[in-house]
């Protein structure tokens, strides 16, 4: 009787309905992540996996200069991408939210999202075409006469990776900031003007603080996937623009050292989590004053 009553309750129906999706996530996400974690404590000798638990991989990953350099570089590049993307995105989000008429906003947002949905590989490859020695940018600049020699600092290095990723993740940064700006009650701005602030000081004292949760969300949404990006460093990064994901791939598919790859993956996740937590904490701080 109690059981039958429970089965008809909201909670039971909710669990029943959510269970296929939750089970899928459990089997195909939680279990594999656990496996990666376990692997990172094992070692591999050619094709046999030694399942004795050891910290050897972690010692090696943290002491080997190549791995350390890759990890630092990944964080550096991701941080630069995040900074560039969010700084470039804010004015756009602000423009669409505050200066575009209401009925045209959806169209602008749609226009901003379209490039994101077109083939990622081809977009990245085209940046190589744009930034290359004989690329579109150099030939155009030379043609106009701004430069004599082609610019070389924009391809096959970290700069190229930053430019390309800032392009790829633009909508990820614009949308959360836009949503946060849209939520701002416009009468708050009028109240600020009424109380004697100028438009500029109102922006810094009212608009920006209220948009901060959106900015922080944008930072997280851009930072997390870029640190694990594989295609861009590989195509436009050159040897000095490679990142941690390229090494993970090499370990798994070329060197046949899955445990080392797993260790690097776990470390990458730890870095992402640590940095995310800092920003989530910041977000809490900003959200405290609001609902």
């Amino acid at each position: 009787m109690k059981l039958r009553q429970y089965l008809r309750s909201d909670a039971a129906r909710g669990y029943l309905l959510v269970s296929p999706t939750a089970l899928y996530a459990l089997l195909l996400l939680a279990v594999p992540l656990a496996a990666i974690f376990a692997f990172s404590f094992w070692t591999q000798d050619y094709l046999t996996i030694d399942k004795t638990w050891t910290l050897k991989n972690y010692r090696e990953a943290l002491s080997e200069p190549l791995y350390r350099e890759l990890m630092f570089r990944s964080v550096r590049i991701s941080a630069a991408v995040t900074l560039a993307t969010v700084l470039l995105a804010f004015p756009i989000a602000y423009f669409v939210s505050f200066h575009v008429p209401k009925e045209r906003k959806s169209l602008w947002i749609f226009l901003i999202t379209i490039p994101f949905w077109t083939s990622y590989l081809i977009r990245v490859f085209l940046w190589k075409v744009i930034l290359g020695y004989n690329g579109v940018l150099n030939t155009t600049l030379q043609g106009v006469g701004i430069i004599d020699e082609p610019l070389t600092f924009i391809l096959y290095n970290a700069n190229a990776v930053v430019i390309t990723l800032a392009h790829a993740f633009a909508p990820f940064a614009i949308l959360p900031i836009f949503v946060a700006l849209e939520k701002i009650d416009r009468s708050l701005l009028e109240a600020s003007l009424d109380l004697g602030e100028s438009k500029v000081t109102t922006f810094f004292r009212v608009t920006l603080p209220l948009a901060m949760p959106g900015v922080i969300a944008a930072v997280l949404i851009v930072f997390i996937p870029t640190i694990g990006d594989y295609v861009t460093p590989r195509l436009v990064g050159g040897p000095n623009g490679l990142m941690i994901a390229n090494m993970i791939q090499t370990q798994f598919l070329k060197l046949n050292n899955a445990p080392m790859g797993a260790t690097l993956a776990v470390l990458a996740m730890l870095i992402v989590t640590a940095i995310s937590l800092v920003f989530v904490g910041l977000n809490r701080k900003f959200l405290r004053g609001q609902k």
């Binding site: 909201d10 909670a11 039971a12 129906r13 909710g14 669990y15 309905l17 959510v18 999706t21 939750a22 996530a25 459990l26 996400l29 939680a30 594999p32 992540l33 496996a35 990666i36 997280l220 949404i221 997390i224 996937p225 640190i227 694990g228 990006d229 594989y230 994901a245 993970i248 791939q249 798994f252 790859g261 797993a262 993956a265 990458a268 996740m269 992402v272 995310s276």
Partner: peptide, 28 residues
Amino acid sequence: RYQFPGKKGIMGAIMLPLVLPEIIVAVS
């Protein structure tokens, strides 16, 4: 539609791949 204990956690786990670097999903 439904309220159930642990809803936030379960939904969070399901949405996790959205914020996980794809390479990690792939290798795991």
